[in-house]
Write a protein that binds this DNA or RNA. Structure first.
Ligand SMILES: [Mn+2]
Ligand SMILES: [Mn+2]
Ligand SMILES: [Zn+2]
Ligand SMILES: [Zn+2]
Lengths: 137, 137
DNA sequence: TGTTTAATGCAACGTTGTTTCATTTGGCAA
DNA sequence: TTGCCAAATGAAACAACGTTGCATTAAACA
């Protein structure tokens, strides 16, 4: 059972608008994390300010999460399942291909538990794998 | 024995210029990773384009490394010891404070060895710890 | 000291992201 | 179904960040 764009909007109490539905469709069609620019390129025509706000809202509401990859531009990916405004649970690694620049979620790899240095209080961690993806090998 | 700015430039076969020496002094005086803006703020007057080029050169030559922290702006930190143009060895974690935004190298924490997902070829990894630093606790 | 080559300073330009405000539209209740 | 209200959108203006090309200056070395 795959959730549709409208399902996702309903689940997060977000108004159903054309831009939002189309952005979600783009994420649903993609297996890689997407930057603002990637998404803009999928539209015939879209206001980029609206797109910034859409992504910000989605991120705040737990629809998408930032895919940290050490690259120059910020990318987002769909949250898998049960994230909400108050509980983002994205404890998985991301892989960034040095060749093609694509970034993917590695849902199966959880962030290993690490010990905080003395005096520091940990709230989370990012793990980014770099290398060559299956397509670029 | 602490290397001076001029020592570092000599070690990497870089010309000794005022801007470069001063940028290195700023890094040597700082225990945290610095963004372009942080560095610019330490100068009375500096051309920001020169600063961009200085940081780029330092990064390429193994003088500084990018401190990935998941934050909005790129930061750099001095490489410890034996990095060169052809061998950047920065296999340590970084800590990013959610409160003050400061990022520090955790030299003592090496990146754990992880298994590459099927079809992927690993060349490295980043580990970023988030939380509250000793000062902000 | 003079020559060569790299570094700098400056201008111009492009990209990215934010803020403000008027207009449009989705959700909801009468 | 209609109309109202709050939220989303579109447009303009602006700020921050970053790059490129070119003329000038300065470091290195003979
Ligand atoms: Mn992810
Ligand atoms: Mn570091
Ligand atoms: Zn690839
Ligand atoms: Zn702090």
């Amino acid at each position: 059972m795959t959730a549709s764009a409208l399902d996702i909007l309903a689940q997060h109490n977000l108004r159903k608008t054309a831009v939002r539905a189309q952005v979600l469709d783009i994420f649903l069609d993609s297996r890689e994390a997407l930057s603002h620019n990637d998404i803009e390129a999928h539209f015939n025509q879209v206001d980029r300010i609206t797109l910034y706000r859409t992504l910000k809202t989605f991120e705040e509401k737990g629809v998408i999460h930032k895919a940290i990859d050490g690259g120059e531009k910020l990318k987002y990916a769909l949250c898998s399942g049960h994230c909400s405004e108050h509980a983002h649970e994205d404890h998985h690694a991301h892989f960034h291909c040095d060749q093609c620049g694509k970034t993917v979620c590695i849902e199966s790899m959880h962030i290993p538990a690490v010990q905080a240095p003395a005096g520091y209080q940990l709230s989370g961690a990012y793990l980014v794998l770099k290398g060559t993806c299956a397509t670029c090998t």
